[in-house]
């Protein structure tokens, strides 16, 4: 083929650029997760072994679950994330609103291997986590045993930590007010029930210290800023491992939920995104994750592999599941915005 030199060089430059672009695109998978000790465990269990076995490069990052970023990327058709860790209500909403790809389970694993609730249209469960009552054993003489104790300022004087938001805060208020776990969402679905939850929260409002990031509760407890707090079970376990033995967990009426992997619509490297998700769903890798941070595997075979000592610390352990409440995703998809708005108004007064 004969081309004039100028055209030839232009052609080769274009070709080189194209090869370079496609080269980087096939090499990198961008995985975004919630940071902190959760991400550290993911590095050990998933990121490093994945890079070793497949030879592809992972770009990792963290976010706080804000869907706005993903929405903006998808709307602008300029998506730079391949795999994202999302919570259940956001996943359900994002799936309906076209933010996440409908997943092809065939590329991930056999559906029957997973906890049924972990498999949804746009996501595959990554782990089961739980919000529990945690307390500082040095600051309290007697151990609290229930959410009613959390509300008992006379018996357990001191500040309480709660996550700044309506989700789970309202459930705990109702549980403390004597509503049984089975009835919590039924009661919360009525106007009177919402009223009741906020009335209950009024009782301890001056003693509440609000937290926002999962890393805060263990810090607040250890520094003595609060005597009791709601917390993610994995964060407390990590703090215990780091030597803060005085931090204790009460499992009574904990609320558990899944975090899932999802692929944003228009992800640049879908093929490898699937490969990564499949890799992270394998029982042997989920086992490593669970021993790094005690969040329950979603792969049933993975649960079987976990050491006995660690298994007792997982939200999925039978004794921890007793009286536990599954977060009601449809309820929060439906009432989330309304209740968060009401919560904001209440908290600001």
């Amino acid at each position: 083929m004969f081309l004039p030199p100028a055209k030839l060089s232009l052609f080769s430059v274009a070709c080189a650029a194209f090869c370079l672009m496609s080269g980087t695109a096939s090499a990198d998978v961008t995985v975004i997760s919630f940071g902190g000790s959760n991400q550290k465990a993911q590095v050990k269990a998933y990121y490093e072994p994945f890079m070793k076995t497949t030879g592809s490069k992972l770009v990792t990052g963290e976010y706080n679950g804000e869907q706005a970023k993903i929405k903006a990327m998808v709307e602008a058709k300029n998506v730079s994330w391949d795999v994202v860790e999302v919570e259940s209500p956001e996943l359900a909403r994002g799936c309906e609103e076209g933010l996440y790809e409908k997943l092809d389970m065939g590329k991930i694993g056999a559906k029957k291997d997973f906890v049924p609730a972990a498999v949804s249209e746009c996501g595959i469960g990554l782990f089961v986590w739980s919000t529990v009552l945690a307390y500082n054993g040095e600051a309290l003489k007697t151990a609290p045993t229930s959410w009613a104790d959390f509300w008992d300022l006379k018996k357990f004087p001191g500040k309480r930590g709660l996550r700044k938001g309506a989700k789970f805060t309202l459930e705990f208020a109702l549980l403390a007010d004597g509503v049984t776990p089975e009835d919590v969402y039924k009661v919360l679905g009525t106007k009177a029930g919402v009223e009741r939850a906020f009335k209950k929260l009024d009782q301890i409002k001056p003693s509440i210290q609000w937290w926002e990031a999962g890393a805060q509760p263990p810090q607040l407890l250890a520094a003595g800023d609060v005597v009791m707090t709601t917390a993610y079970n994995g964060r407390i376990a990590t703090a215990q491992k780091e030597g803060k033995k005085q931090l204790k967990i009460v499992w009574t009426n904990n609320i558990y939920d899944f975090d899932s992997w999802a692929i944003p619509v228009g992800a640049p490297n879908k093929t490898d995104a699937y490969k990564f998700i499949a890799f992270a769903s394998k029982p042997e890798n989920q086992k490593v994750f669970a021993s790094e941070i005690p969040y329950g595997p979603t792969n049933l075979k993975g649960t079987a592999l976990v050491d006995k000592a660690i298994a007792a610390e997982l939200p999925t352990a039978p004794q921890n599941m007793k009286g536990a409440l599954a977060s009601n995703t449809p309820f929060w998809v439906e009432h989330g915005e309304d209740l968060e708005q009401r919560f904001n108004a209440w908290a600001a007064k």
Binding site: R93, E96, G98, E334, H335, E337, D338
Partner: peptide, 24 residues
Amino acid sequence: GTPPLAAAAKRLNMEQPGFRSVMM
């Protein structure tokens, strides 16, 4: 099953909590 319906349902749910599931 498309994003426009989800957007409309979300918009109506904003006015009347619970209306999202009626639409869906």
